[in-house]
Design a protein around this nucleic acid. Structure first.
Lengths: 188, 188
DNA sequence: TCCAGTTTTCTAGCATCGCTAGGATTACTA
DNA sequence: TAGTAATCCTAGCGATGCTAGAAAACTGGA
C-alpha cells in the first residue's frame, strides 16, 4: 500500500513541476512561449503526460498557475494590512510588477476562472477580503464593498496601463500618492 | 494617369474592407476567430493579399483597427465633455461595453502601439486630452495630468475587471457614482 | 493590334501550435 | 510466473501565421 502512496505523491509532485515550469517560462519569455512541447521537454516527459494531469490542456495549466498567484497575492496583501491604504496599494502594485506573467494569467488571460460565483475558489475571495479590510475603515457612509471594487479597479488599471506603456513612467510614485489621497477618508 | 488614381483608390478601399471585416468578425466571435484565412475569404481575395496591405500581418491589422477605435473613442468623449465627470466616465464605459473586441485591440492586445512616445499617433493623445479637459477644473492643487492618469486607470480597471466577471453586475451604477464622487472636487 | 515588361494575385507549402488515438512498455496482482 | 492494469510514448490530425515562386492581368510603346 505504501507503494501506492508513493505513486500518488510522485504524481502530485510532477503536476507541481509542470505548473512551476510554466510559471518560470512565462516570466522569462511570456505566455506565448509556453507551449506544450516546451513544457514536456522541461519536465522530461512526453506531451500527453501534461493532459493526464490537466485534462483542460494549456488553459488548465495557466489556471493552476493563476490559483497559485491568488494565494501568493493574498498573503502579500495580508502582510501589508498594517500599512493602510498606501501599504496595501503599494503591495498590490509591487506584486504585479514582480510577477507580470503571473498577474496576466490571473486577470487578463484567465478564461476559465470566474469571480463572484458559487464555485469561486476561496483564495480568490481572500484577495478581495484583504482589500475590503483596509477600505472599510475609510468608507464612511459609502458602501465599503462597492468602494473596494472601485479601489481594486484603480489598482488594476494602473498596473495594466502602466505595463502597456500608456502612463508616464516618471509619475509612478505620484500616482500612488494620489490614489491614497482620493480613496482616503473624506474631509467633510 | 486617372487609371493609376483609380488603382490606388481601389487599394485603400480594400485595405479598409480588411479592417472592417476584422472588426466585425472580432465583435461577433472574438479576436481568436479572426484568422487570416477567414479574413481573406470575407474580402474575397487570397491570403497573401492581406500581407501586401499590412506587411506586419495580423498584428498590423489589429493595430489599424485599434487606431480607428481611438478616433471613435475620442469623438465619443468629446461629445460627452459637457456632462462633466459623470458624463465622460459614462461615455467611456459605454464605449467599452458597446465595442468590447475593439476595446481589447486598443488596450490589452495592442503589442505594436505605444503611448507617451514621440511617434504616438495624435488620435491616441486626443483621448487623454479629452479626459484631461474634464479633470482639470476639479483637480484643485493636484497635478491635473497625473490625476487624469489615475482617473483613466480607474475607468480602464472597471471595464476590464467587469468584463472578466470580477465585479458584481448589480453594482454597476453604484460604482460609477462612487468614481464621480471620489474624483470630484475635494470638500476641504 | 500585338508584344515585352511590370505589377498584381494565387497556388502550394513550411514550421509550429494544441491536442489525441493506439500501440508499446512498465508495474502491480494473484 | 502469468495475467491484468496502469502508465507512457510515437505518430499524426487539423488549424494557425506567414511566404516563396508560379500564374495571371494590366501597362505602355511599336
Amino acid at each position: 500500500m505504501t507503494q501506492r502512496q508513493r505513486r500518488v505523491r510522485d504524481r502530485t509532485e510532477r503536476a507541481q513541476r509542470i505548473v512551476t515550469a510554466a510559471r518560470e517560462l512565462a516570466e522569462a519569455e511570456g505566455w506565448d512561449a509556453v507551449t506544450t512541447r516546451r513544457l514536456a521537454a522541461l519536465i522530461e516527459y512526453s506531451q500527453p503526460v501534461l493532459y493526464s494531469h490537466f485534462p483542460g490542456g494549456k488553459d488548465a495549466i495557466m489556471a493552476a498557475a493563476a490559483l497559485e498567484g491568488f494565494a501568493e497575492l493574498a498573503t502579500a496583501l495580508a502582510r501589508a494590512r498594517d500599512g493602510g491604504l498606501a501599504g496595501i496599494a503599494g503591495a498590490y502594485i509591487e506584486f504585479a510588477v514582480a510577477k507580470p506573467a503571473l498577474y496576466d494569467a490571473m486577470f487578463t488571460l484567465a478564461s476559465e476562472l470566474r469571480f463572484a460565483q458559487d464555485d469561486t475558489p476561496e483564495v480568490m475571495k481572500a484577495n478581495f477580503a484583504e482589500l475590503l479590510a483596509v477600505i472599510e475603515p475609510v468608507a464612511g457612509t459609502q458602501d465599503a464593498g462597492v468602494l473596494t471594487e472601485v479601489f481594486w479597479s484603480t489598482l488594476h488599471g494602473l498596473v495594466t496601463l502602466d505595463r502597456g506603456h500608456r502612463l508616464s513612467p516618471a509619475h509612478r510614485d505620484e500616482r500612488l500618492a494620489l490614489v491614497v489621497e482620493r480613496f482616503g477618508p473624506r474631509g467633510d
